[in-house]
Amino acid sequence: MADPGLDDADAQGYRWETEYERTWEVLQEDATGSLTASVQDVVLGMKRRRLLEKKPNLRLGMMRHVFVIMDMSDSMKDQDFKPNRAFCVIKLLEYFVGEFFDQNPIGQIGFITTKNKRAERMTELSGNAKKHLAALNLLRTNDLSGEPSLQNSLELAAETLRNIPSHASREIIVVMGSLTSCDPGNIFDTARMLRECNIRCSVIGLSAEVSICRNLAKDTVGEYSVALDESHLKDVMMAQVFPPPVSANSDSFLIKMGFPQQKAHERLDEYSFCICHLDQLNSSLYGKPGYFCPVCISKYCELPVECKVCGLTLVSAPHLARSYHHLFPVEAFQELSSEQLRAFTSRTCFGCMAKNEEEKSHWFQCKSCKNIFCIDCDLFVHETLHSCPGCASSPVKPE
């Protein structure tokens, strides 16, 4: 009998043991003795399971403010991720930045590193992807040393996030390679403070499951995952791209926004510097076209951005329009059985025009337009395109 004092996860034993047993039950060799096709089916099945978990009519945090905490301690020198953990994480974070701003055009992101028992803010919260990519590129030359401090990193991120308006989403993503953390105080007090400030903390582990990380994610309604390999690490990291549901106690406000147009100076006496580059003034920035705030006429290089003078949120209309696809996701396609698939005279994917030559392959049908798609196109429609090509190309029927 299990100890009633243990939680569900402890009573079930180690999670990786049960996952290991179930994995070998579903893996089967093909005619050539290879497991590649079976492994791909398992991975694609996990991705599709995430699509089925997405429900419409959910209140999501569209204005995301995310701090990514990177472990830069000695443990990141391990070579279980090639060429080492640090290089692999930096490479995936560079890809993550591009995907984050593609799926969250009005979101902001910042980076914090921790090593030698300290935490350092690498970049502030910003919507400038080039700034973050340049900072990540500099990390490749940084030394990996000492121990990380999870508590110092969380408190450094909370100093900025607690001042974010309550209608915005406050999040922290921790990429932890070490199994230990050198903290100056009680980290459970920090977790309690994050919960009270409605800051969602998710942890991605690179070594093994750690109790404090699991409890931190559980207390703040975040997610905790341990990466098995580089491809699994990419999947776990990309799962953080999509906005999470908003907590029930978050407030709702009308947000005042400005939609500036890019303008160039017509006269030499009108040349000016942009507000976002005041710390690195040079002649190459003087007189360049920019976006002018409609309230205070401050100049900025890129959008979206929050005006540093008047506090107005400056965005473009396409940015705002692209943010709404999360609120109205494409309904999950229905998987077809072998008998249902045989009923189609032309078994060709409507997306990539590939023909169904294997009976064991997975095929799906849109409930609206009744077109069939392969599993690759199904994932592409739901994760990238956010629109069914069959429904979009069908003529609109008069009511």
Rank of each mutant, 00 (worst) to 15 (best):
A2T: 11
G5H: 08
Q12D: 13
Q12T: 06
Q12C: 09
G13Y: 07
E19I: 06
Y20P: 00
E25H: 03
V26C: 06
S34E: 01
T36H: 00
A37G: 02
R48N: 12
R50A: 15
L58M: 11
L58T: 07
L60D: 11
L60P: 05
M62K: 13
M70K: 12
M70N: 11
M72W: 05
F87N: 10
V89D: 08
N104W: 05
N104P: 09
I112W: 06
I112F: 04
N116A: 12
T123C: 09
L125W: 04
L125F: 07
K131Y: 10
H132R: 13
L133Y: 02
N137D: 14
S145H: 03
E147P: 01
P148Y: 06
S153I: 07
L154Q: 06
T160C: 12
R170W: 01
I172Q: 05
I172K: 07
I173H: 08
S178D: 07
S181N: 11
C182S: 14
N186P: 02
F188M: 11
R195Y: 00
E196S: 10
N198E: 04
I199R: 02
R200M: 04
S202A: 11
V210M: 07
S211M: 07
A217L: 03
D219L: 04
G222K: 04
Y224I: 03
A227N: 09
E230M: 12
S231Y: 00
D235L: 08
A239H: 01
Q240A: 14
Q240E: 14
V246N: 02
Q262M: 15
Y271L: 15
F273Y: 13
Q280W: 05
L281A: 10
L285V: 03
K288P: 09
P289W: 02
Y291T: 01
Y291H: 10
F292L: 12
V305F: 10
K308M: 09
T313L: 14
T313F: 10
V315A: 15
H325D: 07
H326W: 13
F328R: 13
E331M: 04
E335I: 13
Q340T: 01
L341T: 14
F344M: 09
F344K: 08
F350M: 11
E358H: 06
E359L: 05
E359R: 11
Q365P: 08
C366F: 03
S368Q: 13
C374A: 05
H382D: 03
S393H: 08
V396H: 01
P398M: 15
